[in-house]
């Protein structure tokens, strides 16, 4: 009796969240699955000619942009995530051992998190500017000629390099914050014990700090991979809607899979485009899920909760 009553109460309290989630999350989610299997779906007329199992997926995969998007997404993910996790870890450990001005340093490193991605993208575009950019100025001090990073006709690899730098930097703030709070919750006695036992600094890091921080590292790695698979904002922030340096061909585009989805959505009035967008997003979802499952398997052996 009592249990029934409290269940009712719980439902009542959860209702607002459930309603909003249903409308804006669950329905679109299921709808996307549904759309991906519709044949010749007309977005404006809301009509389709029956179902197709793989037709939309085939259209996505055979699109020349898909290969480019896969390549770009993979490069962004597998280069930026490991680098940013490692760099964030080292910065956090360093910050944690700083005694003076720790608060000031923490604020500085957290600033990117509260700054708009588009604004940062524009700032970075300027840092990488061929003629006036900060980076080329500094390189100039060492006698290196200006490099066309993101300007007119910039090469794909230069543009990707700039994008990676921006992605790594943009992702640092949150990671550092999480790692720092993790580090500060580690009992100081472990370090005293390590000191009494004459443990060298590097071993303290690899044998004590990192294992004790492993739940945080795991959490950050998984969420970073998911975030990197969804890369889009960073590219639009740096290169604008064309998703590539001005003057370059579409084969040199920095488009990602999410970019592909938005591209398809931009032409949603054309026959079947909406379904292609849905199919592309399901492909992305599958890749992300498989990857997260793999990581969870690895974590069983490597993470100490």
């Amino acid at each position: 009796m009592l249990e029934k009553q409290s269940n009712l109460k719980a439902l009542f309290y959860l209702a607002p969240a459930m309603v909003l989630l249903s409308v804006f999350t669950f329905y679109p989610l299921f709808n996307a699955f549904f759309l991906a299997f519709l044949k010749d779906y007309e977005f404006l007329l809301r009509s389709a000619r029956g179902f197709t199992i793989l037709g939309n997926f085939k259209n996505v995969i055979t699109d020349p942009d898909f290969g480019i998007a896969m390549k770009n997404t993979s490069i962004i993910t597998f280069i930026s995530v490991p680098i940013s996790v490692i760099v964030a870890l080292l910065i956090s450990v360093a910050l944690n051992s700083v005694k003076k001005l720790q608060g000031a340093f923490q604020t500085i490193f957290f600033l990117p998190y509260v700054t708009n991605a588009i604004a940062i993208g524009m700032a970075f575009a300027f840092i990488f500017h061929a003629d006036y950019g900060l980076l080329n100025t500094i390189l100039g001090w060492f006698g290196i000629n200006p490099i066309n990073w993101v300007g007119l006709n910039a090469s794909w690899s230069n543009a990707m390099f700039a994008l990676l730098v921006y992605t790594v930097w943009g992702g640092l703030a949150f990671k550092i914050m999480v790692f720092l709070s993790g580090l500060q919750s580690i009992d100081k006695q472990y370090y005293d014990a390590a000191r009494v036992d004459a443990t060298p600094r590097r071993r303290v890091l690899t044998r004590i700090t990192i294992p004790l921080l492993s739940p945080m590292i795991f959490y950050i790695t998984v969420t970073s991979f998911i975030g990197a698979f969804k890369a889009y904002r960073t590219i639009i922030g740096m290169f604008g809607e064309t998703l590539r340096p001005p003057g370059t061909l579409s084969k040199d585009s920095l488009i990602t899979i999410v970019g592909l989805v938005y591209d398809a959505l931009a032409h949603a009035d054309a026959t079947g485009k909406m379904s292609e967008a849905a199919a592309a997003s399901i492909i992305l979802f599958s890749i992300t899920m498989i990857f997260t499952l793999i990581q969870m398997q690895i974590s069983k052996r490597r993470v100490h909760f």
Binding site: D187, Y190, A193, R195, V196, D197, A198, I208, P211, L212
Partner: peptide, 28 residues
């Protein structure tokens, strides 16, 4: 402390939770 040749047992033991008993004892 590491040069003094002392063994210290902390109030809450400070055993490394991610290591086995053997690894803990072997650590020094």
């Amino acid at each position: 402390p590491e040069d003094r040749g002392i063994g210290l047992v902390f109030q809450n033991y400070a055993l490394y939770p991610h290591m086995t008993v053997r690894q803990n004892i072997m650590f020094p």
